[in-house]
Design a binder for these strands. Structure first.
Lengths: 149, 149
DNA sequence: CTGCCACTTCAAGCCAACTTGAGGTCAAGC
DNA sequence: GCTTGACCTCAAGTTGGCTTGAAGTGGCAG
């Protein structure tokens, strides 16, 4: 059988051992055996870690992601809920587009003061009316892979 | 003169007094007087708070935002950084679109297991190749205004 | 003048998602 | 058989952006 020890999983997934232990602690992944003290993971943990990363990219918390896995490791979300999430993402995308355009304008506008630029004020009002963007936590894994703000 | 006390500022801006005090503590805003013990703010603090909110929505930290105000309260925006931020938003938007499509597919796909569905695996690989999304902190103010994932 | 109540300060607490550190274990290679 | 070093556990620390609580203050209505 192909059991991977924590070091191997860490290396292949890019997730540090401490984070893997943490994920196990909160029930997000599980180790299937020990060799001595060392956790052994089944190979499919790598796929699961990809899914977790994907979920975090979407802005889900680890707790929410945990709720998306059914007992047998399958993904399990009711269709309606998935559609609702997709729609929420759609709104978030629209908000971010407004914001991106606002930033681009500000970066390029040569008005003496942005506060006096009518276009800027308009964008600000537009941004001000949007539903607030709800950022998730920044993972240490994300930081490792390169912060850039 | 039109001085607003902290309660009024809080009410009009939606920013709680504790946050306003915190902002003042870190030098992001300043009160111009006291009436008794109470902070009095100049009316333009409301604009400044809007800008702060806008900046946070864009994913800037409070420290970064503080750096964008020049001494006289004008915005002094680093163009390169703004472009970088806009580009980061662009990538985030692309990621979220992939994710949204993945969610929609999952909601509608009738394969026995998503992990076995080729289309899903393809979407996942697409998502996996993305540059990681670098989320800012989630503000309490944002939480107050309503979370929605 | 008295009481109320919105404010004040300061320190401590909270949250997520981890990381770090101290001190311990153990399989494998020499 | 001894060392090595990758792992282990558990508790505490980190970060950012606040909130909360306790104890105090002072302007204003009655």
């Amino acid at each position: 059988m192909d059991l991977l020890d924590i070091g191997t999983v860490s290396e292949r997934s890019g997730v540090p051992p401490s984070a893997l232990r943490y994920y196990e602690e909160i029930g997000l992944i599980r180790s299937v055996a020990r060799r001595g003290l060392r956790r052994q993971f089944a190979a499919d943990v790598l796929l699961r870690l990809s899914l977790i990363d994907l979920g975090r990219t979407a802005g889900f918390s680890l707790a929410e992601i945990a709720g998306m896995f059914s007992g047998d490791g399958q993904l399990d979300l009711p269709r309606a809920e998935l559609h609702a999430k997709a729609d929420a993402l759609q709104r978030q995308i629209a908000d971010l587009r407004v914001l991106r355009d606002a930033l681009r304008h500000v970066a390029d506008c040569s008005a003496p003061s942005h506060l006096e630029c009518p276009k800027f004020r308009k964008l600000m009002r537009a941004a001000g009316r949007r539903r607030p963007y709800q950022p998730p936590q920044r993972t240490a894994a994300a930081k490792r892979r390169g912060a850039e703000a």
